[in-house]
């Protein structure tokens, strides 16, 4: 599996956000995209998630240009990708129903209607995939709880489990821990490692450079006009080739 953005450009109005940017992630690879706020990290992730059309360039999954496909075929590609946002964005339902959502939308309408009818009569038992995804984030026993009763950190962990449950090929994480305390941050980082061990490719946008060092195999430094540097995390942090990367990492380059 390879998810790749090739020479992509996006602009909002007259303002270019990304120009001629290329980046890719493979199975079992964790790529951290670091850079200051407003530099286009979220836009890059939205492009990779096929949630936004690039003005120029292509986004390819296993060599297939997603935006050359019709809606139905693109949906099939999109469904191999999971995304977690900075906010948990949980649905007003039980934890288990939240985690089950990705599986549910992939089922046939006839099955979905039957399950819906059954859910009116009595509570349903969560599937193995749901329980397993919840156990990855340490919340296996909380499936019955309403999502609204969770703390911020727990909600974000459920949000992670929700993207993991349908076993995507790629996980895109947009600043998933920026609102979290250290304990919940550590639990999410453990879950990222678990996802990598399962062969999932991960793209993690973060402004926390220590987090990038802890979890990522490779780091891409995104500064004002594109990727300033990309390479193995250790090398990028210890011996950057690019001057501005060096300044950014040492804290001298402030945006």
């Amino acid at each position: 599996m390879v998810l790749r953005a090739r020479d992509v450009a996006v602009s909002y109005g007259d303002e270019p956000v990304l120009e001629g940017l290329s980046v890719g992630v493979e199975a079992g690879d964790v790529l951290a995209v670091i850079g200051p706020s407003g530099v286009g990290k979220s836009t890059l992730l939205r492009l990779l998630a096929l949630a936004e059309t690039p003005d120029d360039g292509t986004v390819e999954l296993d060599g297939t240009d997603a935006w050359a496909l019709d809606n139905g075929d693109r949906l099939r590609l999109r469904r191999r990708i999971g995304m977690v946002f900075q906010e948990a964005n949980l649905f007003d339902a039980s934890v288990a129903r939240n985690v089950e959502y990705g599986l549910r939308v992939r089922r046939l309408w006839s099955d979905r209607l039957r399950d819906w009818a059954a859910s009116i009569v009595g509570p349903s038992t969560p599937t193995d995939a749901v329980t397993e995804a919840l156990s990855v984030v340490g919340l296996a026993d909380r499936g019955d709880q309403p999502a609204g009763s969770l703390s911020g950190g727990e909600a974000q962990r459920v949000s992670f489990a929700r993207a993991l449950a349908y076993d995507p090929d790629v996980l895109l994480l947009d600043e998933p821990t920026s609102d979290l305390d250290p304990r919940n941050t550590a639990l999410i980082e453990e879950a990222v490692s678990a996802a990598r061990d399962r062969g999932i490719g991960v793209v993690l946008a973060t402004h926390d450079m220590h987090q990038a060092e802890r979890v990522a195999d490779r780091a891409a430094v995104l500064l004002g006009d594109g990727i300033a540097e990309i390479g193995p995390t250790d090398r990028v942090f210890e011996d950057p080739n690019d001057d501005r990367t060096r300044q950014f990492i040492s804290g001298e380059l402030v945006y």
């Binding site: 998630a49 949630a51 949906l75 999109r78 469904r79 999971g82 995304m83 946002f85 906010e87 964005n89 949980l90 649905f91 959502y101 990705g102 939308v105 992939r106 949000s159 929700r162 993207a163 349908y166």
Partner: peptide, 12 residues
């Protein structure tokens, strides 16, 4: 955000 999440999880 809830709409974004539904879409990102594979919703039509």
């Amino acid at each position: 955000g809830v709409r974004d999440a539904a879409r990102a999880l594979g919703g039509t």
